[in-house]
Write a protein that binds this DNA or RNA. Structure first.
Length: 713
RNA sequence: GGGCACUUAGCUCAGUGGUAGAGCGCCUCGCUUACAUCGAGGAGGUCGUGGGUUCGAUCCCCUCAGUGCCCACCA
């Protein structure tokens, strides 16, 4: 059946029959990560999007579903790193260039599989327009956006607190860290005044960072305030450090005094920045999470051993017994490694500030888009969650120290200027940084530019996907015709990662929102409401199940009874139930074709009862259409299922048996015509949900002369 | 600490301002020439608690109690 559809050319909107006043309808497929097999989550998005696309196509819209594949930067690198480790190879020892080539090959191989799996699930997307996130033309657009942001002063590179994963050796955005409750100790450490036995007490969970302390900040209302301006000795290095006052220090926590370690704590860094009287700060923890340059015996130790060692050294400086302390720590969302807050020179996107030319901040662009209903959420609760998140938005770290991704198109001037011939002695001002796709040439000197080695956060490029993909297909009109797209359908788990970024970047770059409606689905769960995971052994493989019960059965079981935004609950029992339904449709058809007349009159003389039934069906159909238009696919599918089984099969077919085999040819013909008519109408309604069975029956009924996929609904 | 939800039949979930629905499970009967991957019939719910609005609430508003999720720089 899929071949029939694909060969028909109707996945391509340019080939669809022209209809007067034809409207366009477009969905950009969230490009699946090309780093593994498709899972139930993919089956879910295929089902929902294919339902919308097939429905609109049958209604005569010029319908585009644009497929893609995502290189999925960090995600794929993590998958590949695991694969190498399984094979006994060391990820870190493979040269970067080679690693990139290997991951590229791995990704392209997965991409091929993925495409065939999408076909098995019935995805009626236009393969001729398929895009890959690493296509050259996509990269070019991503670079252009970056350049525009840079020129608008919305991108900057600076030393800021970032989340560092010591295992993956990269920074992560605030969204890529999880929080976990940990039981630690809270240590009370005395910092003595110079030449005095007097001291100030500071509570800390991280005594190993004491060598990097450059100050003590006290709350102005605390009892320590009288010491502001005086100096105490760092208990591990014996260096004198200043006591400063800052109201960001919580008076109720610990002792109301906070040690300031700018390089190892984000709040400390903020306070440090606002106190110019403080000396330069230093880092004592390296990128592997070990102490270095501390000037103490802690050097060379990893964090936890260093903590123990520091307490051993500080034994006589402890004010009282350490307290048990339960708090939230940040961990890497992939490997659960403790995130080390570090101050690093990184690229950031300003999300809350106006551009140089005074236009709205990215955040305000997105908030306005939603407020003015240019972007609507099918499920209102997600709009609330979205708005709440936008309100608390902070700048976005977009540089990653990984190999698998799009390199940031920034070039750094070599440190030494070599003046061009004839320009010796000129006072030259070479650009230190140039944003460019290709290697720039310095206009003043012969020095070279060295490219930034960091790559973009994948979501920076994915955030541009709707316009980037539409701008780079073979049909030059696609962007004009299909942007803004009609629906963005994806999982709610990437509401912030992706939806928010697409609205910000899409609106910023094109002046138009990337999509009009956001439909978010949930996480597929098993019959006990558990997440599917390999370790739990409750994973249902959609392709494996499709082999047994058919893709239609999976599609139905993912849709029926799952309201938008909710987590679908799926089990083999449920899938089997809808397989039975597919069989029921077959059998019902067989009854009509076997017992009914082989010829049907052009204009059947329906009985009054027939007319009444058809009229009732029309009414029924209208309620289904209403559900479809309101994205209530769970209702629509449920209704058709019931009508077919319990009205059509159980009542209408049962009561028509006698007529079907009536000796009077006319009676028989009319009955057959009536039942075929009713069956046909139902097949149309069912097609978006169960495309394979319905099309197969259609082909039998109409002898290959028409394709149900493009029948008028 | 902030936010968003949820609480409906044994289980998983839909749904509506006007005497409650599905799938699966359960019980009884039926191998009737489309289908036992089936058919006919049935048991089973005071729609979490307490208030309010209303002629009328499971559905709207408030309270409380559970449950889940998201966000978050009290060291």
């Amino acid at each position: 059946m899929y071949k029939l559809w694909e060969d028909s050319g109707f996945f391509n909107p340019d080939n669809l029959p022209k209809v007067s006043k034809q409207k366009n309808f477009s969905i950009i497929m969230p490009p699946p990560n090309a780093n593994g097999a498709l899972h139930m989550g993919h089956a879910l998005f295929v089902t929902l999007q294919d339902i919308m696309i097939r429905y609109k196509r049958m209604q005569g819209y010029k319908t585009l579903w644009l497929p893609g594949a995502d290189h999925a930067g960090f995600e794929t690198q993590v998958v590949y790193q695991k694969k190498l480790e399984k094979e006994g190879r060391s990820f870190w020892e493979v040269p970067k260039d080679k690693l990139y080539e290997e991951i590229l090959a791995f990704t392209l191989e997965n991409k091929k599989h993925m495409e065939s799996q999408l076909r098995q699930l019935g995805a009626s997307c236009d393969w001729g327009r398929e895009k890959f996130t690493l296509d050259d033309d996509i990269k070019k657009i991503v670079y252009e956006t970056f350049k525009k942001l840079y020129d608008d002063n919305l991108v900057y590179k600076a030393e800021r607190p970032v989340n560092w994963c010591t295992r993956h050796q990269t920074t992560l955005s605030d969204l890529e860290i999880k929080h976990e409750e940990r039981k630690d100790k809270l240590f009370y450490v005395r910092y003595k005044f110079e030449n005095s036995e007097d001291y100030i007490v500071v509570a800390t969970t991280r005594p190993e960072t004491i060598p990097a302390d450059i100050a003590i900040a006290v709350n102005p209302k605390s009892k320590w305030n009288k010491y502001v301006g005086k100096k105490v000795l760092n208990p591990l290095t014996q260096e004198a450090i200043l006591i400063i006052s800052d109201k960001r220090v919580e008076i109720s926590f610990g002792t109301g005094a906070l040690k300031i370690t700018p390089y190892h704590d984000a709040l400390d860094f903020e306070i440090y920045k606002d106190h110019p009287e403080l000396p330069a700060s230093k880092s004592v923890i390296n990128k592997f999470g070990a102490i270095e340059n501390s000037g103490t015996k802690l050097d060379g130790l990893k964090i936890l051993p260093a903590r123990e060692k520091s307490i051993e050294i500080l034994k006589f400086s402890l004010d009282k017994e350490p307290e048990d302390y339960v708090h939230q720590v940040s961990i890497c969302y992939k490997c659960n490694t403790l995130i080390e807050p570090r101050i690093m020179n990184q690229w950031f996107i300003k999300t809350t500030e106006k551009s140089k030319t005074g236009s709205k901040s990215l955040r305000d662009l997105a908030i306005d888009a939603v407020k003015t209903k240019k972007v609507k959420f099918v499920t209102k609760k997600f709009e609330k969650i979205f708005m709440h998140w936008m309100k608390n938005l902070r700048d976005w770290n977009i540089s990653r120290q990984i190999v698998w991704g799009i390199k940031i198109p920034a070039w750094y001037h070599e440190p030494i200027c070599i003046p061009k011939k004839g320009h010796e002695g000129d006072v030259v001002k070479c650009n230190e940084i140039i944003i460019s796709m290709d290697e720039p040439i310095c206009e003043f000197c012969d020095a070279k530019f060295i490219q930034e080695s960091d790559v973009f956060d994948t979501w920076f490029s994915s955030g541009q996907w709707p316009f980037a993909s539409l701008m780079s297909t073979h049909n030059k009109n696609d962007f004009k015709d299909f942007y803004p797209t009609d629906v963005m359908e994806t999982g709610w788990d990437i509401l912030f990662f992706w939806i928010a970024r697409m609205i910000m970047l899409g609106t910023y770059k094109t002046g138009k929102v990337p999509f009009k409606t956001v439909y978010l689905h949930g996480l597929v769960r098993d019959k006990d409401r558990q997440k599917m995971s390999k370790s739990k052994g409750n994973v249902i493989d959609p392709l494996g199940v499709a082999d047994i019960y058919g893709a239609d059965a999976i599609r139905m079981s993912l849709v029926v009874g799952t309201a938008p935004g909710n987590d679908p609950v799926i089990s083999e029992d449920k899938i089997r139930g809808y397989r039975n339904f597919a069989t029921k449709i077959w059998n019902a058809t067989r009854l009509i074709t076997m017992r009914g007349s082989s010829t049907i009159p052009e204009k059947p003389n329906y009985t009054n009862e027939d007319k009444k039934t058809l009229k009732e069906f029309e009414k029924f159909k209208k309620t289904v259409i209403k559900d479809m238009d309101a994205y209530r696919f769970h209702e629509a599918s449920n209704k058709i299922y019931h009508y077919f089984w319990h009205t059509f099969a159980d009542k209408i077919l049962e009561s028509s048996k006698a007529r079907l085999q009536d000796e009077n040819k006319k009676v028989k013909e009319t009955a057959t015509a009536f039942l075929i008519k009713l069956l046909t109408e139902q097949l149309k309604l069912l097609h978006p949900f169960m495309p394979f069975v319905t099309e197969a029956i259609w082909q039998e009924l109409y002898g290959g002369k028409k394709i149900l996929m493009v029948e008028k609904l």
